[in-house]
Design a protein around this nucleic acid. Structure first.
Lengths: 206, 206
DNA sequence: GTCTATAAGAAGATAGAC
DNA sequence: GTCTATCTTCTTATAGAC
């Protein structure tokens, strides 16, 4: 990896652990394996590193959203895979989503940085809300709406049904971020949650 | 309010907005209405202010837990108020809990400080988990268990039922912390959540 | 207990050699 | 592009008068 990229990578790691103000330029340089002054050949100053991380993240998630639209809205609806979705596939969906967001290096570090900086930085607060509120509620709402249309689940309020599916997953995710030792418990709880969700909504609940 | 107390109060406000490292001793002193050096007559150093906030908080919540035990475990069980609990009282319970935690000055500021510092401070992470995971799941689990015993709700897994009641409330709370403009939406969503919860668990769901 | 003045040190950033 | 040396600024903390 080239130095300019490695700086972003190590800086993100440090920012996600300590927050921007607790990370010193020398810390970042140390991890990259250079001295602090060398770092200024790559970025104008400390803030520029932070901004570059956010910019790169915005690009990444724009790309991700694009591919989700393709795989989500169009292809999935056409293929009709949700019409034959079982409890097992619902379990798999939830578990995979949970483990991906928990362990994917980039998501995990970025989420922690957003968590730390959200009250001090309106831009990051907005990104947080988009990534962990608006996007998942709308994307999963679409999926669950399709599953409901197929007759496997029943509700007259897809928004609340989506909240009931997603908020326990989000909650367990933040618990594991804070205390990784709870992951095993969280996975067990996640399975029980989805099974119960499926039972609750798997019959008429007008 | 005496100066020593006012220092804690203003420091908590600042720490909850910017995080420990972004708050300067002079900022705290400014808000208190004194100069920075005067502050050192009350506390040995900046860290001592932070520690005093945590210590005071630990006392507060120990007291709160004590009174909850009295009003929760014993009195409530004896009085049998949960046996005549209606959907309206469930709505009231959820809404009052939500608004209390969202707007109570001390809880609100302390929760934000915990959020910011959790990954950098194991002690605060443990306090966070206690206040927003272990305590509410166990206390509300007890309440919902009693309501279930009374026959108003039905489940064979009180833990998951409690997760289904609490995690949407927690989720909405963190959303409002980040973006107070969403409070109106959150309150409406909270009501719909509880109504739907009551419908889902208000019949046999073994 | 509060102030002004100031010391001490930390951290960001630059200069200039290699 | 990286280094050492150094400057500058900011922040914590102390000294000592009132």
């Amino acid at each position: 990896m080239d130095t300019k990229q490695k700086i972003l990578d190590e800086a993100l790691t440090l920012f996600s652990e300590k927050g921007y103000a607790n990370v010193f330029v020398a810390d970042i340089a140390d991890r990259v394996g250079i001295k602090a002054p060398s770092l200024y050949k790559h970025y104008k100053n400390k803030r520029a590193i932070f901004d570059a991380i956010i910019e790169k993240m915005n690009e990444n998630f724009a790309m991700q959203a694009k591919s989700l639209n393709i795989n989500g809205s169009d292809a999935a609806a056409d293929s009709g895979i949700y019409e034959k979705m079982s409890e097992d596939s619902l379990l798999k969906l939830g578990r995979e989503m949970f483990l991906y967001f928990l362990h994917d290096d980039y998501n995990s570090r970025f989420r922690k940085m957003l968590t730390i900086e959200q009250f001090n930085n309106k831009e990051l607060a907005d990104i947080y809300t988009k990534l962990y509120v608006d996007d998942p509620l709308s994307y999963q709402g679409m999926l669950l709406g399709m599953i409901t249309s197929s007759g496997m689940l029943h509700t007259d309020n897809v928004e609340i049904m989506t909240l009931h599916f997603y908020s326990p997953i989000y909650y367990l995710l933040t618990i594991c971020d804070r205390d990784p030792a709870r992951e095993k418990w969280a996975l067990k709880t996640l399975d029980e949650h989805i099974r119960q969700f499926n039972k609750l909504y798997g019959r008429s609940n007008k």
